[in-house]
């Protein structure tokens, strides 16, 4: 009797846990269905040529989303170029070189950075960073894609550091001991053995950093100037840009439900969804491939 009651209780707990596990699939599925239902009519409302045009001014029916896509890519690539050297470097320092007392000081500080609301960073950006860059680079305005990229780098840095550090910590100590025993210096061990061994985890860190950057809205909206300009060259990084997230955030509140503008904003949401899907697929396939390779090497 007692036994059956226990198994009954256990079965309930088990099914609750399974339900919780499947619920995330359900939620993502529902979000996708909702996005598709609200966004796909955009293809019907706006001719494809106009939708992928170069001018975004929705209150006059210009629905060209190319400047927005390129704006997001520009800001994100800029952020990753800044954040990855800093982030991986910090992680390598924390896990390989730092004395324990310094690590115990640095890690909470990095976590505080992760906890800063992005609107606070945006405020600092508009008051301090943007005016500084305008003077420093002698730009017409400091509200540029680059300013956004710097803030995004700060925002994605904690993600990159903590995942990269985890990856480095999971490298078996025998690797380091072996390298040191062969006479390699600390630096040679870190650069030649530990970092390559943790490569898949570091790539995951990078990809999650990309995901964090492309989805960030508030700080970017405050400092990039939000001008929907199609980038013409490398100097576009130092000109204003408008991202997809900032566009949705600033226009969704005003738009009439069911209008072409409304559908196009959801269509932009679909594109963001697809981008984060691709980023995640790439991240997991990289992890998978390198694992297979290491498994092959070990066997």
């Amino acid at each position: 009797m007692k036994l059956s009651r226990t198994t009954f209780g256990e079965r309930i707990i088990n099914s609750l846990i399974i339900l919780a596990g499947y619920s995330s699939i359900l939620f993502v599925g529902l979000i996708l269905v909702f996005l598709l239902r609200e966004g796909l009519p955009a293809l019907n409302d706006v001719p494809l040529k106009d939708l992928f045009g170069s001018r975004w001014y929705p209150i006059e029916k210009y629905f060209g989303i190319l400047p927005l896509i390129s704006g997001s890519i520009l800001v994100t690539v800029g952020a990753i170029l800044i954040a990855v050297p800093f982030g991986i470097g910090t992680a390598v320092f924390l896990s390989e070189f730092s004395p324990p007392w310094l690590r115990n000081l640095l890690k909470p500080i990095i976590e505080i950075l992760a906890g800063l609301p992005s609107v606070v960073l945006g405020f600092l950006g508009i008051q301090i960073v943007a005016p500084f860059f305008r003077r420093f680079f002698d730009l017409p305005t400091g509200l540029t894609a680059f300013t956004g990229a710097v803030l995004l780098a700060l925002i994605s840095l904690p993600t990159i550091v903590s995942i990269a550090e985890d990856a480095l910590n999971t490298v078996p100590p025998a690797y380091r001991q072996g390298a040191l025993a062969l006479g390699a210096t600390n630096w040679q061990t870190a650069w030649g053995v530990t970092v390559p061994a943790a490569r898949s985890g570091l790539l995951t860190a990078l990809m999650l950093g990309v995901g964090r950057s492309i989805g960030e809205t508030m700080a970017v909206m405050m400092v990039t100037g939000n001008a929907p300009v199609l980038p013409g060259g490398l100097n576009a990084l130092f000109m204003p840009a408008r991202t997809m997230t900032a566009t949705i955030a600033s226009e969704m509140g005003e738009v009439a439900t069911g209008s072409p503008h409304y559908h196009v904003l959801f269509f932009i949401g679909i594109i963001l969804f697809l981008i984060s899907l691709v980023v995640n697929l790439v991240a997991s396939s990289l992890t998978l491939r390198s694992r297979k390779r290491s498994e092959r090497l070990l066997s």
């Binding site: 001018r55 006059e60 400047p67 305005t141 600033s250």
Partner: peptide, 12 residues
Amino acid sequence: KAIFSADTLLLP
């Protein structure tokens, strides 16, 4: 039908 130049900064 004139509109804002595309490089106009739109601040929130």
